[in-house]
Design a protein around this nucleic acid. Sequence first.
DNA 1: CGGGGCTGGAAACAATCGTTTGAAACAAGT
DNA 2: ACTTGTTTCAAACGATTGTTTCCAGCCCCG
Lengths: 216, 216
Amino acid sequence: MTIDTKERLLDAAEKLFSEHGVPTTSLRAITRAAKANLAAVNYHFGSKEALVQSVLDRRLRPLNAERIHRLDELETAHPEGPSVEAILDALLAPAFVISASSHHDFVALVTRLHFAQDPALVDLLLRNFDEVQERFFAALNRALPELGPRQLMYRFHFAIGAMAMALINRDVLPRASRGLIEAVDDDNLLQRLVNFLAHGFRAPQALAEVDGESAR
Amino acid sequence: MTIDTKERLLDAAEKLFSEHGVPTTSLRAITRAAKANLAAVNYHFGSKEALVQSVLDRRLRPLNAERIHRLDELETAHPEGPSVEAILDALLAPAFVISASSHHDFVALVTRLHFAQDPALVDLLLRNFDEVQERFFAALNRALPELGPRQLMYRFHFAIGAMAMALINRDVLPRASRGLIEAVDDDNLLQRLVNFLAHGFRAPQALAEVDGESAR
DNA sequence: CGGGGCTGGAAACAATCGTTTGAAACAAGT
DNA sequence: ACTTGTTTCAAACGATTGTTTCCAGCCCCG
């Protein structure tokens, strides 16, 4: 083993967390998989929760950096404001790239954490996502000024939910579609999703919605 | 306590499961909340997993029955085939009705289970959803024949994801929107979601998608 | 050569988990 | 009133959890 224990622990934890969930994977399973001692986790990270944070940080930081980088490039290339499709692609594509790489476990982990019950985990996730959300929300607001911030915020979260589902579709779709979709091509899936969401974002406001929007 | 122990256990379990997650809530916490003895769960249900199944069945059965009932009425009222909006409303509205009722906890529980890691739980959920999916998939396929079954299946799952996110928005949105959305009006939320999704479903296929669709 | 700081390892810590046991308490039927 | 079947109870089961302790090994610097 040329890599050191700390990284082996992170790799094993990432794998096991995403396969079986955070609360149900024991430190013993992690250290066994990492060929390390049981005490190694508490020695290197301090606690199990700190290990979870490290696992997330390691990949979430470059992922979100890539998202913002793509948006930056987009906005300098189109000073008048990029299209909805381009913005969504900048937001979603980096996640699909990671998903297609060997760390496809990790995306499932983060996706599930979006819906986790533990407030500490959700907060950790949201804190990591704050800057990304602000930037992309502003970009979408510029591309769709007729919607208003509240309507846009709702649709933004619908989109996050659809993305989350798409990212674990690889696991669920073959079973849920009863064989209609046997293998998922990531590039194709991303384009389908972006296309679907872009048309949702551009939907004109229904009557009942406008009421809710103007109220207050 | 006029209601019997079995129901008190179901109520307490539903509440605690959705607040803290299935694996992290102990039988001791459940029986304590239900003012029952620790052994009561294993006596009435046999095991913890059987308790989970009972908790889900109790509300999932009438929920899905209502969905199918609405679709039935819709299809007899519009023999030529109901609109995409109407179909989506029949699928989503019952979930929002339950969410608006006192059983909001339960919806959050099911939503999170959609993304659970435990294959047994996911399978239990999908088994409960099979008939609903088949009926609504067929209805949508009739309303959008130009899409083809594969494209429709993808979009169907995107929609499920967006619905899942919308259903737990009540918990997450105030925090995630940084105060922009302080309280969520369920009726309004449902209409926003249906409108968003309907336009997504009607999106024309992008070039890259058609390739993937025609291939094979 | 020899100590001091970092890393690894075996064992034990207290706490909690789901489940089981055996007897007490209750209800209802004959 | 006595028996039968169902429900509740306190207590304990073995297993597993996250964490801590203590010691052996290591490398590096003095």
